[in-house]
Design a protein around this nucleic acid. Structure first.
Lengths: 222, 222
DNA sequence: AAACATTTGTCCGTATGTATA
DNA sequence: ATATACATACGGACAAATGTT
């Protein structure tokens, strides 16, 4: 019988990685709140490890912009500025557009099918009003395109920007638009037709229009 | 007499930061060679500190793609793939183009003057064949534009991509083009005229044309 | 196959520096 | 201003994991 391979993936993750993942999730979903002071000893006890891996993970989180360390003074969770979405989306749109353009000539039939399928799931999530599912599936959709582009630099940068966008979402600074479903369809079509430029333009619009929508929503609410 | 203020800047840099800066420089300029194995204890002794700050700086360098850590096995300097410039320049071009577009409405007369002045220095460096100066001044030029855009996410990403481009330069995988001087002038003109779109397009071309030039050079050499 | 040598991962104690009384 | 409390930065030792003989 076939022996289940370990996928050669290190399922064994170090205390540092575990602490990193846990802390990032807590920061993104708001369990650790903006501005909250982080005591490494306290976190270490909570996670059942020593201060070293906690310290190391905090430093990694700092490079990604989730915590700010004031040497010798304190370490705290970064603030969530709703206006930051205006700084976040333009570069994300630019990189996603580039991803679409790069991925277009590399797109195979199977991947195109997966994109359509994921977009279908996205459509259902949006219609059913399950925002948390929707944003997750939306990320899956775009992740497929970024993966297809096969550019490690883009991958790393998008990953980080997405994490910040997700955090904004948990702080109610993001709206999901039903129109995105149609836009995704148009992107798939352009890529399948080999029109990278059009795919890039559509992708850019897909991301940037969230800004306008957001401002309109805020105006109505106020 | 005026007492020189500390600029409230931490001139006192930690052992971790010192180790980080030193190691990054050594990796970029080739002192630490691609694939070289890094023994943290050895580095610690060389820098006169303990393993802790060295380990921490190595982890930060890993997130930036300059070293790769194989948990429990080894830590080594990442390889330099000349082909990586093809993955590096497109996102850098996209982000620099976005910077130019964003910076355009924020450009004041003084900054425009500084851009022209730096470009003049760039021109001299290129003409005199001082490539090392030229790439440094070229970076200064683009840095002014990125700074003017005032987007912290773009700033961090460009900074890292630039560091990798600089490393490629030290491995002779980059050519400097006299034509860049003219392109810089056109960018300044477009920005001063308030035409952000044109500035972005010019900026994108400025960065991407280095790829074509590079391939032509390699073909001639081989 | 097992014990060894080496390197990394983790723990915890101490020193340094900062903020508060 | 001094002293006190406290959090972080660093050091050094132990433990775990890997590769080798």
């Amino acid at each position: 019988m076939p022996i289940p391979s370990d996928h050669s993936k290190p399922v064994r993750l170090s205390a540092k990685e575990a602490a990193y993942n846990q802390l990032q999730h807590w920061i993104i979903d708001g369990t650790l709140r903006p501005g909250e002071k982080l005591n490494d000893l306290e976190i270490a006890k909570a996670l059942g490890v020593s201060r070293t891996p906690v310290r190391e993970s905090l430093q990694l989180l700092e490079t990604r912009g989730f915590v700010k360390m004031y040497p010798g003074k304190a370490t705290q969770v970064t603030e969530v500025d709703p206006e930051a979405i205006n700084d976040l989306l333009p570069p994300l749109a630019a990189l996603q557009a580039l991803s679409a353009e790069t991925a277009t000539p590399k797109l195979d039939a199977d991947t195109a099918r997966r994109l359509a399928e994921v977009n279908e799931r996205f459509s259902e999530a949006v219609r059913s009003g399950n925002d948390e599912d929707a944003i997750r599936v939306d990320e899956d959709f775009h992740q497929i395109i970024v993966d297809t582009a096969e550019n490690p630099y883009i991958l790393a940068m998008v990953d980080n920007l997405q994490a910040h966008v997700r955090r904004q979402f948990f702080h109610d600074a993001i709206v999901l638009r039903e129109q995105s479903v149609k836009e995704h369809e148009a992107i798939i079509e352009a890529m399948s037709a080999g029109d990278g430029e059009r795919a890039a333009a559509l992708m850019k619009t897909n991301w940037l229009s969230a800004i306008g929508e957001l401002k309109a929503t805020r105006t109505n609410e106020s």
